[in-house]
Amino acid sequence: MPRLSADARHLVAFTLNGRPVKGLASPRILLSDFLRHEIGATGTHVGCEHGVCGACTIEVDGMLTRACLTLAVQVDGSTLRTVEGLAPAPDRLSILQAAFRRHHALQCGFCTAGILMSLDAFLRETPEPDEAQVRDLLSGHLCRCTGYTPIVRAALEAAADLRKTTRETAHA
């Protein structure tokens, strides 16, 4: 049974977007702060810090997770995906990211990292979503720029594009 004292910093190691990373954290350090300040992965944004706004949403062991409601020491040994892991190459956007760009599904971009992570996981599980399902998913995020409509359009178009890609791969 690991017991981590409040005052000391403890080794935390996990897989981030396919690469092993590690750093030191005292028990009170939030995963959102650990990713940004200790690992240097600043793609994950920090908004409300009590789980409401959704900006810090990432994937931990396949589960959508508010990084601000998670302690860094909790994810020792886990597998994490963040927005930095979405693009297939540094100069290429993923299908979902490209749809966001075409539809102007972001303006200031603060909420975008979390919304992309939610939609990325959602579209894998729900390849043929309807608008109501997308809006239900987006109820877990706050966006103050777009009014959500361009995000819904981008998500539905990305779903259609992803279905095409899967079919072509299957026929190849």
Binding site: M1, R3, A6, R28, H50, L71, V73
Partner: peptide, 13 residues
């Protein structure tokens, strides 16, 4: 908003 300091125990049982 950050938590105050605390110790952490990961129970195995």
């Amino acid at each position: 908003m950050k938590p105050a300091s605390f110790g952490y125990v990961r129970a195995d049982s």
